[in-house]
Design a protein around this nucleic acid. Structure first.
Lengths: 216, 216
DNA sequence: TTGGTATGAATGAACG
DNA sequence: CGTTCATTCATACCAA
């Protein structure tokens, strides 16, 4: 079993997770207020699932710069050219392609990430490493970029399956079993947060508990 | 990844298939009695896990569209109305708020981003138009770009999972396909398994090419 | 194998 | 509008 195949399976699961979630929504919708209209789920749209083939499954790996490429990239980055233009990107890509597979996207992303990472590193370093418990829960409405530690912003810790409330306990149990398994290998998105550990799990296929601060 | 885990994943998919079937059944029953009903489907999930944890779910900093919302947005986007008017934005927002927290700003940004990225994708695709596979071309109607899916190219123009047709009885066809999967033949080779067991032409739920392309 | 970390990639939001 | 930033997610790689 290769990783690609495994990943394909994971994505399959994610697809069905999504389907199930939406089905559950429909079901709840129907059972909750049977006389209360508002559901247009029955006659909504329906995207005919394309039956076209498409077997580029073996393509899922992300680009990994070779040492030589990395060296060149670092050198260019250190030259101060913060944001290479499109043409520059092409140039660099052409240059690097002599040392391995690479694309403009890779170069572009690399610079983006590189810059962001440097910035964040500096910010965290200059700020302070002593995280106290007095983190202000209020996020600056205008400068949310300056408060990397307040929100306990690990991602959804709860497996989605548990969120599904069925009327049938049988299904619920099934989902329970599911959730255990669908734990992805790892996840640990960010380390810039103060001191809390991210919770592994959560494939994040769908969100439902969104409570953001939206600016009109 | 071992074979046992692979087997477990298969079981998981099978379970999802079962769940979907039952949900479809339930939905059918409910919709049969009432021609079309259903109340506002809020996100009134009962999440025993989170509540037991004690703390509230962390609010995200940025809006993340739910699958349903994405589906609707994509659909509207594909309708050609490139620049939704203010009123249109309001309308869409109202519509989408039935499926999760959202604001007009989100909708506006989404369309802006969507368009910009489509454009850029198109641009890059034309520049890197090296070769063309004849796989999912049928699925790229207009601006979906004719991406060169070479070996290393991993992005697919396929719609997301939410594009799956589930609002209609036609979901049964998907489930049917699924049942095939849940009956895993032990003979599966390397490429065949992952190559054909996916939803046709649709794997990525979140992954999507953006600016440039992963050329090979 | 399992768990953690580094980092490539996706995307909502903001800036000009 | 096009470009860039910031945040998050997912995967490659490494350590135990």
């Amino acid at each position: 079993m290769t990783d690609e195949q495994l990943e394909t399976l994971r994505k399959q699961i994610a697809v069905y997770a999504s389907i199930c979630e939406q089905l559950v929504e429909m079901h709840k919708n129907l059972t909750a207020h049977q006389d209360l209209a508002g559901g247009r789920l029955g006659n909504l749209y329906c995207d005919p699932l394309m039956t076209s083939a498409g077997h580029k499954i073996t393509a899922r790996q992300r680009w990994t710069p070779t040492p030589v490429q990395l060296q060149i990239l670092e050198r260019i980055f250190d030259q101060g050219t913060g944001t290479p233009s499109k043409q520059k990107i092409k140039d660099i890509t052409s240059e690097l392609s002599q040392h391995g597979q690479i694309s403009e996207t890779n170069v572009y992303n690399w610079f983006q990430n590189r810059r962001a990472r440097s910035k964040r590193k500096q910010l965290v370093a200059s700020s302070n490493n002593a995280e106290s418990e007095v983190e202000t829960e209020v996020e600056s409405p205008n400068e949310k970029k300056t408060n990397p530690e307040n929100l306990l912003s690990h991602h959804n810790p709860a497996p989605r399956a548990e969120d599904l409330c069925f009327q049938n306990p049988e299904i619920t149990s099934e989902l329970h079993f599911l959730s255990v398994l669908s734990n992805p290998p790892t996840y640990h998105g960010d380390d810039h947060l103060s001191g809390k550990m991210g919770v592994p799990g959560n494939y994040g296929i769908y969100e439902q508990a969104e409570d953001y601060n939206m600016a009109g």
